[in-house]
């Protein structure tokens, strides 16, 4: 068991080190997030009161789009020099490889989200600090949903044609419940309303989604990687 977690950690550290040396995925993702935030300002009046009501949705659209860029690179990075074959041939289970990669992606996706959040707050006058601890909880859960589904599908789409298109095509419909829950919760929290009553069920749904899809991914990842 301890050996398993050490293997997970090795993969995570390897991925993070590779990413931090090139910064290709994180930089692209951050720049993309900023561009989407800019585009939103043309879509509607950014300083209207209504903006605050839809802010939860907007924020998660930014996160989902920018996150996909990070996730796309996760397995694609291993393609040159046949690194992916070497990783699969390594004496670690597919689950350890998957979890290691997912954790590395999680750190990167969260980093992008934590930068995009204050920028969003400044540009659109949204009080994102009002319920900060609870907002962090939603961010952590939502980002994990995005990461776990994105990582397994990143493994699924790494070798196929139109990879960049297929990943979001497959990921977003699956993520509908998680994104919807995160959007509902975030919209309430940035308007200063803590999680209570109605919204607790959304939180439960989000946790359930995370647990179910993590479990299914861990079961199926061996099939995806080895065939």
């Amino acid at each position: 068991m301890i050996a398993f977690f050490r293997q997970v950690l090795v993969v995570t550290v390897k991925d993070l080190r590779a990413e931090l040396r090139t910064k290709e995925a994180v930089n692209a993702s951050l720049a993309f997030a900023l561009v989407i935030l800019l585009m939103f300002s043309f879509a509607f009046d950014p300083l209207e009161e209504t903006t605050r009501e839809i802010s939860g949705g907007l924020l998660w659209i930014v996160f989902a789009f920018a996150g996909t860029l990070v996730l796309n690179r996760s397995f694609a990075r291993e393609q040159p020099n046949d690194c992916l074959d070497a990783l699969i041939a390594a004496p670690i289970s597919g689950a350890a490889l998957f979890l290691g990669k997912a954790l590395a992606n999680y750190v990167l996706v969260l980093a992008v989200e934590l930068v995009a959040l204050p920028v969003f707050g400044i540009f659109y006058g949204v009080h994102w600090t009002a319920q900060f601890p609870q907002l962090m909880l939603v961010l952590l859960l939502g980002a994990w949903a995005l990461t776990v589904v994105g990582t397994i599908f990143s493994a699924l789409t790494v070798n196929i044609r139109l990879r960049e298109v297929m990943l979001p095509m497959l990921t977003y419909p699956i993520l509908v419940p998680a994104l919807m829950g995160a959007m509902q919760l975030t919209a309430g929290l940035v308007n200063g309303k803590p999680i209570s009553g109605d919204t607790v069920s959304w939180l439960k749904m989000l946790i359930g989604f995370d647990v179910i899809f993590t479990a299914v991914s861990l079961v199926l990842v061996e099939t995806v990687l080895v065939g």
Binding site: F153, I174, V176, W202, I212, V216, L220, V224
Partner: peptide, 25 residues
């Protein structure tokens, strides 16, 4: 066949969650 089967399983698991969550909505 393998990848499609994996995706089909994911899709089937997702359907009830989608239905329940959207019902609350």
């Amino acid at each position: 066949a393998t990848f499609a089967a994996v995706f089909s399983i994911f899709a089937f698991i997702d359907v009830p969650i989608v239905i329940f969550s959207i019902k609350w909505w």
